[in-house]
Design a protein around this nucleic acid. Structure first.
Lengths: 337, 337
DNA sequence: AGTCGTTATTGAAGCGTTTCAAAACGGTGA
DNA sequence: TCACCGTTTTGAAACGCTTCAATAACGACT
């Protein structure tokens, strides 16, 4: 079908080895030969076959990225950062979304492994990391993104989510809120539980403050809306006076439901804080206070770690990089902010 | 390094052909052999080498998707739809963002071609489609997404953007607006010029209505903000009373700038309509009226076309599918909506 | 016992590259 | 003229998989 290097060689009257050299190390080939081969390539419309090249090379020139949700702007920004950094080094990024499903995560990783990717970036759903160990054992470096490696066995680039949780809760308490609802889930996801635990620790220090947990199935706008309706259905005296949403998507859902029904004012009746600080948070009906994570930077840094680990081989040193989250105050917690 | 099919064969005491059969058509292999081989696979932690498999097969089992902007929720939704549809048929989707750069688009397509993808979905920046012809000539089916094929030479899944432009302009005129500003660009992008032309045709029919074009460098929030500042800088009597933004990202940027400075009320002083109806449009400070495109469906449908075209081979019939855009009225054009 | 028909397994060819030791070439100096 | 040397080019051997014609195994039937 398509022209192969062999056809080019015949057309140019040289051997396949020479064509390959023109393609990969033109400087060692005589100038006249280079032009002849180049012409033949042009002539036949030859395009390198990546599969053959990779087969020979043993491994691919792409990294795999597994995120929790491909439609979440936070992860898109992260992916964007990863991609830009990877391209600079001649790598390409394959992305898959696990949609909070361990099975899906598993099958994406399997695909990456069959592809012999040069490394894997992952924000895992599955608490069981044995598949990641298997990957490393197979010589594929793994870097955790948006999530630390508790036992330091993997390199990781993350944000201190416990501290992020504390920051959020502290801010709400400082605004005089006492009945806080934490909205997020599945709790199995480390990022979620860390944020919750951070908030809990701060709330525990204030005598009259309480924290109520409302678990969601996913970190989506829809789930936020669902929980908000639950809250609205409560008798007024049992309602929280603040909501800490585990991410901005949830926060937006919550906000939409509150605003739509018009029965609860934000922040007067109920304050709202999100997490991630996606671009859209600042553009919301009531601009949403959020705990900022540097998404693009996380992605880029993670690819950097992957690159060094890929160079170093099996005896690479693991590195845990942790960014500090940052509070961005907007009108959803402070009237007129 | 990693175990090959040959190692598995040795371990299980069978030939490589048999191992391959166990992997691909277990039903033709004796049950006892299957278990023996399966055990060996388990034992050695064997993982298929995708490169070798593809090299043999001649073509990959993935589709390539080129979008204008990977961070635009509209394209993410489109990609999501494509992915879900592709997975059902055992395909995988590779995505690349051209960021409105023809060069970048070119290099992504080149990568896809080297990868021998089974098909390409593309929302082209480049008005010159010769590279796409080249792809087709190489036996790779191409489907245009979010953009029709004017001469019907390519299959496409799109929305009637001229009609979409008309809908938007008509709506603004019906609200009594007469000085409309069109914000969008680069104008070279067909979606943008179609929307503009639709709007222009409707405005031309109303004697005292005018349409002023403000071209942007990109379809981003930032560019929207920039244009809004330009508008704010105008003397009050030269200001438009409505803005039609070529997509929701721009609309959000415009809105942010207006709201932030607080000098122009939406929709009282100036109405605002966007395009795409991304999820975030409804959650904006002032919920944004928009022209809806069924992103997920477009992606899924496009993969469907690709699948049939891939089956049919070179003599496939091209099909142009066009969805009709739908007006979604919100508060940014109708007070209290 | 020999033959036929199934059912299971084998072994080798080939996909398109890259790599690398070996060969060819073309001057140079003796 | 010849041996030697640096520069180019060659040709064959992998890489790991799938495919397919050929072979083997094994009852059943004549």
């Amino acid at each position: 079908m398509a022209a192969s290097i062999r056809d080019v060689a015949r057309e140019a009257g040289v051997s396949v080895g020479t064509v390959s050299n023109v393609l990969n190390r033109p400087e060692i080939v005589a100038a006249a030969t280079v032009t002849r081969v180049t012409q033949a390539i042009e002539q036949l419309g030859f395009v390198r076959n990546d599969a053959a090249r990779q087969l020979r090379a043993g491994r691919s020139t792409s990294f795999g990225l597994v995120v929790l949700d491909t439609r979440n702007p936070f992860f898109m920004d992260l992916a964007y950062g990863a991609q830009r950094r990877a391209i600079d080094d001649g790598y390409t990024v394959l992305m898959g979304g696990s949609d909070d499903s361990p099975e899906r995560e598993h099958s994406i990783l399997e695909m990456f492994e069959e592809h012999r990717v040069a490394g894997v970036l992952i924000s895992p759903v599955d608490t069981d990391l044995t598949q990641l160990w298997k990957l490393r054992h197979a010589g594929i470096p793994v870097v955790l993104v948006d999530r630390g490696s508790s036992d330091r066995s993997f390199s990781s680039v993350s944000v201190d989510d416990v501290e992020g949780g504390r920051i959020a809760a502290r801010h709400l308490l400082e605004q005089g809120r006492r009945r806080i609802a934490f909205v997020g889930g599945p709790i199995g996801i480390k990022q979620v539980s860390d944020r919750l635990n951070g908030a809990r620790s701060v709330v525990a220090e204030v005598a009259d403050a309480t924290l109520e947990v409302r678990e969601t199935q996913a970190l989506s706008v829809l789930e936020g809306r669902r929980i908000a309706e639950e809250i609205l259905a409560l008798p007024a005296d049992r309602r929280p006076d603040a909501v800490f949403a585990a991410n901005d998507l949830l926060a937006m859902g919550v906000l939409q439901a509150f605003v739509m029904t018009g029965s609860l004012r934000v922040p007067e009746d109920i304050a709202l804080i999100g997490y991630d600080d996606i671009d859209f948070a600042s553009a919301a009906v009531v601009p949403i206070t959020s705990v900022r994570q540097p998404a693009v930077e996380i992605g880029a840094t993670a690819v950097g770690l992957l690159l060094t680990e890929a160079q170093a081989g099996a005896d690479a040193t693991r590195e845990q990089i942790e960014f500090t989250p940052e509070l961005v105050v907007r009108a959803s917690t402070v009237a007129g902010a």
